[in-house]
Design a protein around this nucleic acid. Structure first.
Lengths: 198, 198
DNA sequence: TTAAATTTCGACTGATCGTTCGAATAGTTT
DNA sequence: AAACTATTCGAACGATCAGTCGAAATTTAA
């Protein structure tokens, strides 16, 4: 007989345990300064055992990103295929991302910032990243076309709104995370909505 | 006799040459992956010579940040002490930063992003950073009080506007940097100005 | 129970790289 | 020119650490 379901499941649990130990270390040290020894002791395995589950430190790192992006994207899909207007859908997407960020503190700083300086061979998480960015860009374009956003270059608007959101969710002290209410209020008060001009 | 002015000046020029070589390397490799050998060959000195001018790799890095922040802050001072309203002054500050970023491409990504994961002993550039953030926060508070921005929590507005600006200036392809015109137009069209509500 | 497969791990290795050494060269002063 | 100072640098050192090895422990299958 081959390998049992339970075995596969347990193996996956061990991988996840390694991954979450690794995330802690990466968060505090960054990719380069994090050592496999530290990841090992943080996750409760011997160093060599890590190499039984992953080929390299980079692979561990990549697995964290891949997992994170996939989870994020999956949670976003229903929001995106909802049938509200572009502007509201856009806000809903932000709210959902903020919710994710709240549930897994620290991970999202990674998802968005980590891959800057990194030329691994394959970056499978980029698939999700591009999908997400594409979707958001599309929402903004639709919103502009329908007059729910000011008539601006959509690339520019994308950068601005992307940055704004990063600033809200990922900046400053982690102690007081930004609430969903804050995000929604802020966008609606701050960002001109031509359809609501009095 | 002691050391001549010219000698001091030449020494400073050599330090600057090292710093700008180092910036190139740090930009493409990051702090950890950048090697002193590469910085040496990039700046045209032998490796040991670097240590004649700086005590360590970290000191080189810190000198880049310190220089950059000081230059930035100095260029900001006249803008800040101008006597336009808070909102316009805020826009002017952003424009000035964008101008700086354009003149020294790549440096500003550093100034704002690099010090995240870094616990050096002394971080003298933080002085400028705090001054700048404090000033901007003050402008936003004044702007809110005078009704030039929506009535929002100023911390939140600060994060949002900070992020927005980072997104504009530091995100995406470096090839097509955001122009001053873009920044100004975007802020004025995008960010609600209650005094101009029709 | 015994054989086979899976999982674990401490000790070792090899490469990388920050930093130091000591000596050579260039420049300045007397 | 001689004495002194400032500058340069390749070679060597030593610490760190990713990744490997081979054997032990544990689990599963027969």
């Amino acid at each position: 007989m081959s390998i049992s379901d339970r075995q596969l499941e347990e193996r996956k649990m061990r991988q996840d345990r390694i991954l979450s130990g690794a995330l802690e270390v990466f968060k505090s040290k960054g990719l380069e300064k994090a050592t496999m020894d530290e990841i090992a002791s943080e996750s409760g395995f011997g160093k060599a055992t890590l190499y039984y589950y992953f080929h390299s430190k980079e692979e561990v790192f990549a697995a964290i990103l891949e997992n994170g992006w996939e989870t994020l994207w999956t949670s976003l899909e229903p929001v995106i295929s909802g049938n509200e207007g572009p502007r509201q859908t856009f806000v809903n997407v932000l709210l959902k991302i903020a919710e994710n960020a709240k549930n897994r503190p620290g991970l999202f700083e990674f998802l968005f910032n980590a891959p800057k300086l990194m030329q691994f061979e394959s970056q499978p998480w980029k698939k999700y990243q591009h999908r997400m960015y594409g979707t958001i860009q599309g929402l903004l374009e639709d919103g502009i076309r329908e007059g729910e956003f000011p008539k601006l270059d959509s690339q520019l608007l994308f950068k601005a709104m992307g940055g704004l959101f990063m600033g809200l969710v990922l900046m400053g002290d982690r102690k007081e995370p930004v609430s969903a209410r804050d995000v929604e209020e802020l966008i609606n008060q701050l960002i001109t909505d031509p359809t609501k001009a009095e």
